[in-house]
Amino acid sequence: MTRPRVLLASCAALPRSNADDTALPEVLAEVGVEADWAPWDDPAAPFGSADLVVLRSTWDYPVRRKEFLAWCDAVPALANPAAVARWNTDKAYLADLAAHGVPVVPTELIAPGEPLRAPEEGFVLKPAVGASSRGAARFAAGELGAARSHLAALHAEDQVVLVQPYQRAVDGEGETALVFLGGVFSHAFVKGAMLPDPAVSGPGPGERFGVLPDAALRRAAEDAVDAAAALRGLRRADLLYARVDLVRGEDGAPVLLELELTEPSLGFAQADPGALPRFASAIRAAVG
């Protein structure tokens, strides 16, 4: 039996991803899948002949999105699919999910040239196309001058900008990230506030630890994954991975902050030892 050949797409700055999933080729070998890392823009990488190309640490795409999406379209077998990457790399997808009934952090899109209509309390501005917290900034209700300057700087880069009320529970609880592999819940971890209030004690930026999410978080995450699959005309199992980032609103109910379907860190370093092997099995199933 011929062993499937998988390429894990990274970027030039991190050609073998980061420590979270660098060992994935070795774990895939244990289940009979030949795999290696390759930057997505490496012209020598045989993406066209691979049985499957898995989007992983393609973290330079925000400044090259058009080129990145053209590459996605050209890959014969890509996970998650190119159409999902096109939809999910622009945070306007949050409006689609909200219209589909998913509880989402209230989000307004501000196109270049449009004015800021800030919430009455603290808020966040961030580019619609961006990774991690790059370009994101938090403002108090009275910091409209600074916020308008930040908005102008992002608009000068031809960025559509999101404005969202800051979710204060993040300062104390962080964000809960729930990870699904092949449509099935795998594990969860907490991410500390990326734009913390220095007056509030709690997890520091980037601090993460494994958790067992409660039923409300589980239901909210399951609903978000179902909605995304339905909106893209897919089955849940067609999504090789999904990371659902949830926070608690003012009433304590979970709301969606991000649904990462393109290149998220999946928190294997914070998960149980079986998480990375589960991902390997999901990749093998996707090859078939």
Rank of each mutant, 00 (worst) to 15 (best):
R65G: 00
L231W: 09
P273Q: 13
D226S: 15
A82N: 04
R117V: 15
V33M: 08
A242W: 07
S265Y: 08
L181R: 02
E114F: 08
R243M: 00
D41R: 12
L116I: 11
I283K: 10
R248E: 03
R278Y: 00
V63F: 04
C11Y: 00
R134P: 01
W59G: 05
D238G: 13
A215G: 06
G183D: 05
P39L: 06
L239P: 05
V84I: 02
A99V: 11
A177Q: 12
D21Y: 02
L212I: 14
P264H: 08
A230H: 10
H100R: 13
V63C: 02
R208P: 10
S186M: 03
Y93Q: 04
P205L: 04
V31Y: 10
E120F: 02
L144N: 01
D36I: 01
A38H: 13
L240D: 10
G204P: 02
G182W: 07
L257H: 12
A95M: 06
K126S: 01
A216N: 00
F180C: 07
L144Y: 00
A29G: 14
V6L: 10
S49Y: 08
L240I: 03
D245W: 13
G101D: 03
L256G: 13
E120Q: 11
V105I: 10
K191V: 09
V63N: 03
Q164A: 13
E157F: 07
F189D: 03
A140K: 12
A220D: 04
V63A: 14
L195S: 06
A12I: 02
G101Q: 04
A111N: 00
G183E: 05
A227K: 12
L94I: 05
S186N: 04
P198C: 02
V102L: 01
R243D: 11
G142A: 11
A136D: 04
L257D: 14
D214V: 04
P254Y: 09
D36E: 15
D41P: 04
A199Q: 14
V129Y: 13
R86K: 11
D90C: 10
R5N: 12
S186P: 02
V6D: 01
L109C: 04
G135E: 09
V104L: 02
A141G: 06
V200S: 02
A92R: 15
V179F: 11
L52V: 12
A242P: 11
Q164L: 13
S149Y: 07
V124W: 13
A146M: 10
E250A: 14
S57V: 01
E67H: 12
G267I: 00
P76L: 02
R243S: 07
R64Q: 09
G145V: 15
R64A: 12
A13P: 00
T262D: 13
D223C: 05
A230M: 00
A156I: 07
A95S: 14
S132H: 14
S186H: 05
L94F: 06
E30L: 08
P277E: 09
T2R: 15
D158L: 03
Y166V: 02
M1E: 10
R65W: 03
G48W: 03
A136T: 03
L78P: 03
D272T: 13
F185R: 15
P203K: 07
G274N: 06
V84M: 00
V160P: 01
G32L: 15
R86Y: 01
G233N: 15
R218C: 11
L195M: 14
G101A: 09
S149L: 08
A82K: 01
A286T: 09
L14R: 08
A92D: 05
A79P: 01
L276G: 07
